[in-house]
């Protein structure tokens, strides 16, 4: 059961959980803020739409194609 830090708060999730799922388990499910200021959540679930992009340990990654790891820092706000 990895424990990650989601927007500054610790969150423990089952093994094999994607970061996209963790956003909903530990927060409001949103991943990013759009260019006109709307909050957005994962849409396609499969690496196509890029709506799920978050900052993971300083790099922009797709939440739906990244598995949660112990100690990972995930940021959904710029």
């Amino acid at each position: 059961m990895p424990e990650l830090i989601l927007d500054g708060r610790p969150l423990r999730v089952p093994d094999g959980t994607s970061v996209a799922a963790a956003l909903a388990l530990g927060g409001d499910g949103c991943a990013r803020t759009s260019v006109s200021g709307q909050r957005r959540a994962p849409l396609c679930g499969m690496g196509i739409c890029q709506e799920c992009r978050v900052n993971i340990d300083g790099r922009r990654r797709l939440a739906c194609q990244t598995l949660c790891r112990d100690g990972m820092h995930v940021e959904t706000r710029p």
Partner: peptide
């Protein structure tokens, strides 16, 4: 991939693809 067509409100959090939701659930949503 899924054909996702725009309709009013489709950018709201809570709206996903159909297969998209299935994929997200399998991954723990």
């Amino acid at each position: 991939r899924e054909l996702l067509l725009p309709f009013p409100g489709w950018t709201l959090p809570g709206v996903t693809g159909a297969g998209g939701l299935q994929a997200l659930i399998k991954a723990g949503l």
